[in-house]
Amino acid sequence: MMVDDKNKKKFDNPHYAKREVIGPDGKSFIVDPMNDYFCDARPKVHEPNIIPAVEKFLNWARSKSLWVLGFGTGCGSIEIPPLITPRFDVFRFGIQMRPTPRQSNVFIISGYLSVKTLKRVIRSYEQMQNPKYVLALGSCTVNGGMYYDSYNTINRLDYYLPVDVYIAGCMPRPEAIIAGFNKLKELIREGKGEGANLYAKNFDWYKANQKKIIKDWNMPDYNW
């Protein structure tokens, strides 16, 4: 709990409080959910493979097999179903949906992000494994779009997460999203899809920005 600002609300959910529990064998032990359930080790920078040819091959494989986390934010998530159904069928291009962040590589931020959703997005993003890419849809993620003066949405996504590709529009059509995926593939093949390492390098800056926005910060600084 890294809340240093006095104005921020202290989180006191009894489920997360440190407490003493008597087990079925009569012995008592301490339960501290915040430490027991989460790992708060900082993210590490994982350097690319030292042999350029190997890294080039791996990047080719990564670009051909993009697993997208099934997480919809904002109105743009309605553009995802046409992508995976017969009209556009992105499976042809090696893009598949994955239901769990552990196995996904691509996070599509599909539209405006309310502060409440941003918290979930950060948790999900941090649970993804190292080569991971963020695709930001719509003008809302660029500068706030039509929600630029809203009290509870963020305006610019790359203050909080390293974005690889922005797809402008309100909303971008599925063709535009496929074009964005092609751009992302180009970047990965050129070895520029290093968002996860960027996040690890500038971790303190990203965390400070996130905490400025999220008032009830009730999770460890980094949960894998």
């Binding site: 990564r62 159904t85 017969p86 069928d89 090696g94 494994q129 190292n130």
Partner: peptide, 26 residues
């Protein structure tokens, strides 16, 4: 059956290479 074209025939191998090339593990 769902009237899609579907994955290319070599997709499982690429997925396998991709999964073995993920840099971090927990």
């Amino acid at each position: 059956v769902a009237r899609r074209i579907g994955i290319p025939w070599h997709q499982p191998w690429i997925d396998l290479f991709k999964n073995y090339s993920i840099r971090s593990q927990i």
